[in-house]
Design a protein around this nucleic acid. Structure first.
Lengths: 117, 117
DNA sequence: ATAACGTGCAACCATCTGGTTGTACGTTAC
DNA sequence: GTAACGTACAACCAGATGGTTGCACGTTAT
């Protein structure tokens, strides 16, 4: 069971786009590694306005990398490792194109020379 | 030997940004999976101008995902799986934050209940 | 030599992005 | 009830992005 959840092009765009910002990667790391944090608690950590952090969280949420759930007057942000795994799956898939290319070449040449890196 | 090649924030930005476009992901897949291809050969595959594809290749090259080398009057584009592996490494690293959080929690609770997914 | 090909680059354009400030509104604390 | 807090959202701005066309220039083919 390799969790073959194919994401659409648009979803992948959003996913990688969301990861293409240091602040957002930091937020993901924070909410994955620690307790879920409120948006304002996150905002206090960065040298930018609350609204800016709020936008970053929104981008992460749209990409499915975090979820928000209301708790009293705050919204707790928690990480979603599943979506991270999907991004990783795509990279592994791309890498496999490369490796399979070699195994194919090896098969054609039929020369059992152990290709040591 | 886990190839600990730490990329800077800016490099990671470029890397994930480059992957956040369907055309570029397709180009990467093409040059990783098949023969190296010239820029114009790539361009002929997409419904956009040559210059647009050229720009995409430039973005991929700046991100280190592909390399170009002159061959006669064309430039052959080939994939660089190493950089892809670096992107994957970061995702794995982020995911490990999540899992380590649980192992830590398990350690604190000291309740050996096998957490089956 | 000249034409055709492959590439690079600049200028231009519409849209998106990442930041700001300000305002509004529900929730909690006093 | 009122003040403070946490969030949402709109308007605005500078700069990046993704596309276009046009032109220049080196290489290959005829």
């Amino acid at each position: 069971m390799v969790a073959r959840y194919a994401l659409s092009d648009a979803e992948l765009d959003r996913l990688f786009r969301a990861l293409a910002d240091a602040t957002r990667r930091d937020i993901v790391a924070r909410v994955l590694g620690g307790e879920p944090a409120s948006v304002s608690a996150l905002a206090s950590r960065y040298e930018m306005s609350f609204a800016a952090v709020q936008k970053h969280v929104a981008v992460l949420e749209e990409a499915g990398l975090v979820t928000k759930q209301p708790q009293g007057r705050e919204k707790m942000v928690r990480g979603n490792p599943r979506q991270l795994a999907r991004a990783r799956a795509l990279l592994v898939q791309l890498e496999s194109l490369w490796t399979s290319r070699f195994s194919q070449l090896d098969a054609i040449l039929a020369e059992p020379r152990p290709n040591k890196e």
